[in-house]
Design a protein around this nucleic acid. Structure first.
Lengths: 159, 159
DNA sequence: GGACATTAGTTTCAGATGAAACTATTAACT
DNA sequence: AGTTAATAGTTTCATCTGAAACTAATGTCC
């Protein structure tokens, strides 16, 4: 048996099987969830996920700047800037230039934006509840721990 | 107090907090992992994640058609088609038209493709091991159960 | 055999994406 | 004050994306 063949066999038995490969599984699962939610946000409220993230952050932390939103939402500033510009055009948020620093814009939800948030929030929590429905309390706690631990690995890896 | 205000207060206390919202957490975590791996695949082997998925599937299941790859890899046929065309151009895979059905192309890794797979596979398993390192055996089993359960929810929801 | 539907795979088109360049403003240093 | 560096946010550009249209081959029904 050739060295090459041996190597391949060992790689195969050490089993890099895509279906069991964690990054792949995370990716497939997350994309399914995101696509599902994106469709619902778009269909029922005409907004995208980045826009929804801006709204959800403003609902909790307004007034805040675009940079604040970018930090809080794990989105880059380009995506945030575009989401903000669409939301301004749609009248769901308002922006006041910061008096003490004219580079900054202080953002907040408009009345219409608050209405949208109040409509979406319970739906979103319902979808989350559906996803978690088959999990025991113990499993939910473990999932939380696991995600925190993996986040820490990524933080430490500078990723 | 207005009905509207009451509603808003209740929404806030029922706490849709983005940082704790499961779809958001999955999305952030997965994107970090994917970006990290994509950078490594690109830098070290000059391939993208879709291309890597095609390679990993062919390594295990060749010969298979583009449709087979699409099914196995949870990628749409457009993405698969593009990955295949790049891999053909790079000489990492080969395609023979199926004699019994000339629409189909039977795909397999070339020698160079096998070499790439054998180089990447142990690295990929190493990265996975790094992610899982802080988890106990119990937690790993639970994570597996959890992902299966959530997948089932999505299957049942037709998502 | 010929009309119609289906399937495999590619191409097109209309956005979405993000790195890098850019503008406007503020901060820091001399 | 004046020059330089840093920051907030936008725009550009080259690439990625996926739905829909398309081509080519096969299957189905009469």
């Amino acid at each position: 048996m050739s060295v090459r063949k041996k190597l391949r066999d060992s790689a195969q038995s050490d089993a890099l099987c895509l279906e069991e490969f964690l990054p792949y599984r995370f990716s497939v699962l997350t994309n399914r969830i995101s696509r599902h939610l994106a469709k619902a946000y778009e269909k029922q409220f005409g907004i995208t996920i980045p826009e929804w993230r801006v709204i959800a952050n403003l609902a909790r932390f307004a007034p805040m700047t675009a940079s604040d939103v970018a930090d809080k939402s794990s989105m880059d500033k380009v995506k945030v800037s575009r989401a903000i510009s669409r939301l301004l055009k749609a009248g769901l948020i308002a922006r006041d230039t910061d008096v003490t620093d004219k580079r900054r814009g202080q953002l907040r939800l408009s009345k219409a934006g608050e209405d949208v948030f109040e409509e979406i929030a319970p739906l979103a929590l319902g979808w989350e509840a559906d996803l978690l429905a088959p999990l025991s309390g113990e499993e939910r706690r473990t999932l939380n721990d696991i995600m925190n631990k993996i986040q820490t690995v990524l933080d430490d890896a500078g990723a």
